[in-house]
Design a protein around this nucleic acid. Structure first.
Ligand SMILES: [Zn+2]
Ligand SMILES: [Zn+2]
Ligand SMILES: [Zn+2]
Ligand SMILES: [Zn+2]
Lengths: 137, 137
DNA sequence: AATGGAAAGTTATGTAATAACATTATTGAA
DNA sequence: TTCAATAATGTTATTACATAACTTTCCATT
């Protein structure tokens, strides 16, 4: 991700703002189509309008995609303009749907060390743990 | 996963055997539909035939699903009947498509430790690292 | 042979994502 | 300001991924 893409003061377009607002007001990850459903009242009609906004929000580091759910969540650093840690992981509650984004130095160094030892060059990662959150068990 | 499900001498049905054979003979992960395409000559016609076989093979621990690719790979322990490690991770080459399944004690303990500290109870995990393998960079 | 459960077959449908192309809005020189 | 380049939108259609619902076949056990 470029430094420019990390600048959170970048102005969002109308559709990008709409999509981000829906994600911010949700306590669970949302699929592109359920985002669309919530925005039909605001003039959005086609999946592509949502997918294009999501693409930009992903590039800007303001949302994350959960690969194992085909769903999207707002990044917990989205509002602060800080540098985003490299390796991101998620704990996803199968009961209440809550997602905990976290950045664990040990997870990161273990993956980096393994990659180094196997000659693998990391470009991206998806680390998603499913189970029950503290409230739900 | 039950102990029974780990018993690799369990007899596979015709469709399960066909699907597993296709995955074993592929050097890359395959989507359900591309598995189906390779099995049309053997009488398979519908996606469900493949998905049902995959479901059983997943339960039996003989294949893994790559969440970030909507694709499936044969488990590297598939032939040996050994107990499968709890936490599995994958390095996926974006150039040649090769997948390296690995089990890293440090990754595992870091995730378990984080879950403990946040009160999260792990049931399943998807750890998928994308990049370039040693041969490709 | 009768029976019950697992697997397989079949058709239809639901969900996720992108292709292709036309239009409008923004930006940034000349 | 004017105009060309770029970015964003709108729209329709299509492709890719996955499951629902129901029927039939297979096979082991009684
Ligand atoms: Zn984040
Ligand atoms: Zn919960
Ligand atoms: Zn495995
Ligand atoms: Zn490679």
């Amino acid at each position: 991700m470029t430094q420019a893409a990390q600048a959170h003061d970048l102005k969002l377009t109308k559709n990008q703002h709409l999509v981000l607002s829906v994600l911010e007001s949700s306590r669970q990850p949302l699929s592109a189509y359920s985002i669309l459903d919530r925005l039909r009242g605001h003039g959005l009609k086609a999946p592509l309008q949502v997918y294009r906004a999501l693409e930009k929000l992903l590039e800007a580091g303001r949302v994350h995609r959960l690969e194992s759910m085909n769903a999207f969540v707002v990044c917990c650093h989205s509002r602060h303009g800080q540098i985003h840690p490299r390796i991101t992981a998620f704990e996803i509650c199968e009961s209440c749907g809550k997602v905990n984004e976290f950045h664990d130095e040990k997870v990161e160094s273990a993956l980096i060390q393994h990659a180094r030892s196997s000659g693998f060059k990391i470009r991206a990662s998806a680390i998603e743990v499913h189970g029950l959150c503290a409230d739900c068990h």
